[in-house]
């Protein structure tokens, strides 16, 4: 898992990115589709983008304040852990 946080000097927004490797692109895609449907609870101040490249799930946040960013990243990590535990216990995925 690789992370990277910085303030973009141009926009003044906080950026945070996270890369999560999965055993295969299939599992990375399942995680993406499980984690994407629920939008951020607050109306503004933060955006979150999820993408999959091969077996890597990448998440990129952009937020106005560190406080908002922390809450979103924390809850995402809780959700991610649950999805991975579910895959460990009830996977691997059946053939499509």
């Amino acid at each position: 898992m690789a992370t990277d946080a910085e303030t973009h000097s141009g926009t003044g927004r906080l950026e945070f990115s996270l890369d999560v490797p999965f055993p295969s692109s299939r599992e990375a895609t399942i995680a993406l589709r499980s984690l994407s449907p629920d939008k951020e609870p607050r109306k503004g101040g933060i955006t979150k983008q999820l993408t999959v490249t091969d077996n890597l799930l990448s998440v990129r946040w952009s937020a106005d304040e560190a406080r908002i960013l922390r809450v979103s990243v924390n809850s995402f990590l809780d959700h991610l852990t649950l999805v991975i535990e579910t895959m460990d216990m009830f996977g691997p995925p059946v053939d499509p």
Binding site: D38, V83, F90
Partner: peptide
Amino acid sequence: MGAPLVTVALVARTVAQLWG
């Protein structure tokens, strides 16, 4: 409640995909 609902939905979505 939002947070408990999300927890349950995450597992349901994941197993639905794992099991096809």
